[in-house]
Design a protein around this nucleic acid. Structure first.
Lengths: 163, 163
DNA sequence: AATTTATTTGATAATGATTCTCATTTATAA
DNA sequence: TTATAAATGAGAATCATTATCAAATAAATT
């Protein structure tokens, strides 16, 4: 899909906790799945580098380590992880899904349409207003998607300079 | 895509203004496009029936009137309309895009995951909190997606009765 | 350690949504 | 009425994702 959407360029690598293999093994067992090298590699790929990756990107990282791993395995496992909530799926427009290890704290995203930078934020006021809206309509809320799009300071400046 | 997502069933038909062909002709000219029967049919399809339709659904409605109209024409025109903002694209998870004639007032959606009902709402407090968040990160906001998911009163009741 | 068995895997085909191609048709400006 | 750039429709192409299935393997059991 070439489409109207932006193509995300590099994103800053975020500082992250040390890779804890045994924790991942535990998660896999929690899902009633078997611990395999492929699955550990997928976890490793999710854990290092940029926070929001496509299945394709995960595949490429895993493939670089073990060229025998196939697409299907990556997609399959990402799906399981998403179903169990260990991984969160983020979608922007019609682009391919991006995945991240579910963060401890819930957060939403603010994306720069120029450079692709993604900022994470949490805002309790917004959350509770959402609950209120749902209640007004008699809904029980199960989840939500809040994605903000705009231009970051650097890109706004850069654009001004050009014109 | 069978996937994890729900398949939207029927949605209440919303009361809408009278179909105004000349207004649509005007919009087409504004886009620097030519007025064709196909395009008027597509407008007609968007204007009547449920508010949020897929390209496929639009195609079927148009096709029922004129069996000669093709997919491509529908997709192409929906894209133009979306680019010019006359139509708004709504996406839920990995499902196919749904389109609606851009409403006069901006609004967001609250969707029932059981029956597919879509409620529209607007909440200025949420909007301005979004602006505040963006400002905190030095972003200029251009757009946002806020989709709430849950279960409507009827479906919640129905589920309770079953168990 | 060897055996068993249900899972998992990878290659590849299939799918579904959407876009592209291109020869033909058509709206509209002149 | 004509000229011509734009629009159309049929079908191929693409892209992300999922399904299929025979071969490989984790882990429970002997």
């Amino acid at each position: 899909m070439k489409s109207s959407s932006i193509n995300l360029p590099a994103e800053k690598i975020i500082k992250r906790e040390k890779f804890d293999e045994s924790a991942f093994r535990q998660m896999i067992r929690t899902m009633n799945l078997k611990v395999t090298d492929q699955r550990l590699l997928i976890f490793e790929a999710l854990h290092s580098g940029r926070a929001h990756v496509t299945a394709q990107e995960v595949f490429e990282k895993v493939h670089a380590v073990d060229g025998a791993v196939g697409f299907a395995t990556v997609y399959r496992f990402l799906r399981s992880l998403t179903e169990y909530g260990f991984v969160t799926e983020v979608r922007m427009g019609g682009m391919s899904a991006r995945y991240e290890l579910t963060p401890k704290r819930h957060h939403d995203h603010l994306t720069c349409m120029s450079c692709g930078k993604i900022c994470e934020f949490e805002n309790h006021e917004i959350e509770s207003l959402q609950e209120r809206v749902a209640a007004q309509f008699g809904f029980e809320l199960t989840s939500h998607v809040l994605e903000l799009y705009g231009h970051c300071r650097d890109c706004t400046k850069a654009k001004l300079k050009k014109s």
